[in-house]
Amino acid sequence: MENDQVEIKLEDLRTGSDTVLRKVYEENREKFLNYARRYNLSEDENIDVYQDAYIIFYDNVMSGKIERFTSSVSTYLFAIGKYLIFDLIRKNKKTVGSDFDLSRVGDDNLPTDTIEMERAELTTEQFLLQKHFTTLGTKCQELLTLFYYRGYNIQEIMAHENYNSENVVKAAKSRCMKTLRERIQENAY
């Protein structure tokens, strides 16, 4: 066979390239939907579950919960997707066929110890912080996103964003954080 999928590396995903994101999405979509169709959910629900599984998987890669792949991307997506299907069926109290064994979705070795399946909603303070974050200049938003989200260190940011030196990056980062803090304080009254 016929296993024509090219191995996706964690680093490829971390770059956030649309090409890689789409490739992973398309390569696993049919397999997942084919699998999900047996659970009596609508096609829209199946697609939603697939997208949510993809997002959870990606969030865990970006937050560092998944530090390296020990399974194929497919396996992660299926494991998370199955958990979500089970959750959805439970929430909707969906009727499932008599030949369907609910335990099937629950009997996996889900990596719950490493994968964060649900994230808390933003608090009021975080919501306000987000509002102010979006008012920062593009450069600042990019720099902070590279550091806090993509996990780039100062040297990597320097290379990626064509800064002249590490000190310039550090100074820029401090300035962005200071501006953000000031904007919050200005609007606190």
């Binding site: 649309d18 994101l21 789409r22 999405y25 398309e26 979509r29 697609i47 997208q51 993809y54 997002i55 990606y58 969030d59 970006m62 937050s63 994230r119 933003l122 303070e125 975080q126 912080l129 987000q130 974050f133 979006t134 902070l144 996103t145 806090y148 989200y149 954080m177 953000l180 803090r181």
Partner: peptide, 29 residues
Amino acid sequence: DFEKDVKEVILNQETVKLKNKLVGFEKEI
């Protein structure tokens, strides 16, 4: 706590962007 909140906020923002991208992929498919 402040930096942790910034991280959380960015994660949330990027998640929304990713969801929009996936919806776009789906439309194209």
